[in-house]
Simulated assay, not measured.
Amino acid sequence: MTAKKGLKIASLAGIPIYVSWSWWFFAALIMVVFRPTFSQALPDASTAWTWAVAAFFVLIMFGTVLIHELAHALAAISFRWKVNEVTLNFWGGATIYEHSSTGKEQTPLRSLTVAIVGPISNLVIAGAAWLLLQVLLDPSGTAQVLLTITVWTNLLIGIFNLLPGHPLDGGRVVESSVWAATGSRARGMRAAGWSGRVIVLLLFVGGVLVPLLQTGELSPFTLVIIVLLGAMLWQAASAAIKTAEAQLLAERLTIIELMTPVQTVLSHASISELIPLLNGAGPGREYQQLPIAVLDLNEHNGHEVLVGIVDSGALASVPRSAWNLPVSTVSRTVNPGAQVHSSDTVEHLFTTFMEFPNEVIAVIDETQVPHRILGIINPETLAGRLNA
């Protein structure tokens, strides 16, 4: 099965595992770069055999990265969080997970646990490979070469991922530590973003400037890798800082101040019943107004439930002769589970966004019985306000 994100190779505990198209380029690059190393380490081996060893090393790297990402995924599952996918790509891999209201609450310690198990898995692999080296009968053969390079690559991957900066796993350690100390996850994210930028600068100094000053030479391949890696890390760190700043701004406000008020109509109403809600500003402008929320009533307690938002474009295209149609024909369906209470913290709002990405969030007044819908929070609208 193929998709834009790559080739789906398996599913574990309901988690799809993809291999992105960029990973195949990574695999070819690894073979080309390491084949000369295997030729030197195995001087009696044929060219074909060294290519075969390089291909086998690619499989080892594949398994190493997969174990790293599955460690993240299984740790998240242990807290009953929702894991959407695991993807292997050019830079290693990514595990996409989000908090679920049915799972355990997100805390600094749990966030740190999910982050740190990935690098730990690499260090465990390195240790296991080193132990196997100690019992090898032939210390000069192919197995010895593969095990040795497995030890060093896993040590490198594990230590590199523990560097304290976003988007590396060590950045989550920084985020969790600052979150625990200040009570604000956004402050932790901002600190991890800034430390990620520092790591990029140190990477450039250590990988480019120091070799140039010492030898006056620098491998073009090394330069390209450092520039690409540094650009990726800097972009991710900068995005984290921007997101954190927006969340810190939002934390100074209340849910009521962040929401957009709405007018409401029941889902079984006809389009003609929307007309009194329109401001009548003239053809082409009559629908530029407050959103109109489409509601159902919970049959057990009478609470209002947001099930849709009237689409102004669809409404404008309906002729008067069709105004007897239900409002559902001119509304966008929303997830009725995506909701917060007006008294909730903004931190809880952002947790809800994580559980329902790109969904409109309903704001409920829980002080009244039955509960009422006060407004909505659209993630795109909110982002525009906070980043203005």
Score class of each variant (00 low, 15 high):
Thr2Lys: 10
Lys4Thr: 02
Gly14Cys: 04
Val19Trp: 00
Phe26Tyr: 12
Ala27Val: 05
Val33Phe: 13
Ala48Lys: 11
Trp49Phe: 13
Ala55Ser: 12
Phe57Pro: 03
Val58Glu: 14
Gly63Thr: 02
Thr64Met: 11
Leu66Ser: 08
Leu66Asn: 10
Ala73Asp: 09
Ala76Thr: 06
Arg80Val: 05
Arg80Leu: 11
Arg80Trp: 11
Val83Arg: 05
Glu85Gln: 15
Trp91Thr: 07
Trp91Val: 10
Thr95Lys: 03
Glu98Asp: 04
Gly103Met: 01
Arg110Pro: 00
Val114Gln: 07
Pro119Asp: 11
Pro139Glu: 13
Leu156Lys: 05
Ile157His: 09
Leu168Tyr: 09
Gly171Pro: 02
Arg172Phe: 12
Val178Gln: 05
Ser184Met: 04
Arg187Gly: 01
Ala191Val: 11
Arg197Glu: 13
Ile199Lys: 05
Leu202Ile: 13
Leu202Phe: 14
Leu202Trp: 12
Pro220Gln: 11
Leu228Gln: 10
Ala231Ser: 05
Trp234Cys: 05
Ala239Cys: 00
Ala240Gln: 02
Ala244His: 02
Glu245Tyr: 02
Leu248Asn: 04
Leu249Gln: 09
Glu251Asp: 04
Leu253Ala: 04
Ile256Asn: 11
Ile256Tyr: 15
Met259Gly: 03
Val262Ile: 12
Gln263Thr: 10
Thr264Ser: 15
Ser267Thr: 13
Leu274Ala: 04
Pro276Val: 08
Pro283Val: 08
Tyr287Ala: 03
Tyr287Asn: 11
Tyr287Gln: 06
Gln289Tyr: 11
Asn298Phe: 09
Asn298Asp: 15
Val307Tyr: 09
Gly308Met: 07
Ala316Phe: 10
Ala316Lys: 13
Arg320Cys: 03
Val334Gly: 01
Pro336Val: 08
Gly337Ala: 03
Gly337Ser: 07
Val340Gln: 08
Asp344Ser: 14
Asp344Thr: 01
Thr345Cys: 07
Val346Cys: 07
Val346Ala: 05
Phe350Lys: 12
Thr352Pro: 06
Glu355Arg: 02
Phe356Cys: 02
Pro357Ser: 09
Glu359Gln: 12
Asp365Phe: 09
Asp365Cys: 03
Gly375Ala: 14
Ile376Ala: 07
